[in-house]
């Protein structure tokens, strides 16, 4: 394909826009899994099935471990509203009923982002969420489509 010469100004503006946008999304929430989880992307419905504890295994057979912050943590509330698109009281109902009716274990909960990130890094099969700025190379962010 023939390359056309571009005027530098629009490119500069585009760069500035992306750079500005980048700083604006530092607190954006992303779905995060343990580095050993063999997945790159999820659909919104996959996410709901994982967090409603219906889907108990990753495609390679590894058990899913749902990790979350405490119910009243601001990031947990944002995760329910923006990514899961489910009222947090409904999510709690799924989790409590699952546990107390003998359908399996309960998700593990943490009171700080630091503790959640550490657990995501060391728990095989773990899935949770973090802010973009809290990611490190021990956890893997997934694209939610």
């Amino acid at each position: 394909m023939e390359m056309r010469r571009r005027h530098p100004l629009p490119m500069l503006l585009l760069f500035l826009l992306i750079w500005q946008g980048g700083s604006a999304v530092a607190d954006e929430l992303v779905v995060v899994v343990n580095g050993g989880v063999n997945a790159e992307r999820l659909s919104g419905r996959d996410l709901l099935e994982l967090f409603s504890l219906r889907k108990g295994q990753w495609p390679d057979g590894q058990p899913v471990r749902v990790l979350a912050l405490d119910k009243d943590h601001n990031l947990h509330q944002r995760f329910c509203r923006d990514l899961l698109k489910l009222a947090s009281y409904r999510l709690e109902w799924f989790w409590s009923r699952h546990l107390y009716a003998g359908f399996g274990g309960a998700p593990q909960r943490f009171d700080s982002v630091e503790a959640l990130r550490t657990a995501l890094a060391v728990t095989p099969g773990a899935i949770g969420y973090l802010q973009q700025e809290d990611l490190n190379d021990q956890v893997k962010a997934l694209v939610v489509e």
């Binding site: 058990p63 546990l99 107390y100 003998g102 399996g104 309960a106």
Partner: peptide, 18 residues
């Protein structure tokens, strides 16, 4: 009052009681 335990033996089996 209630207490339960869940033992995930492997990826397919678990034992649970309350």
């Amino acid at each position: 009052v209630g207490t339960n335990l869940v033992w995930q033996a492997d990826s397919r089996w678990f034992v649970a009681g309350q």
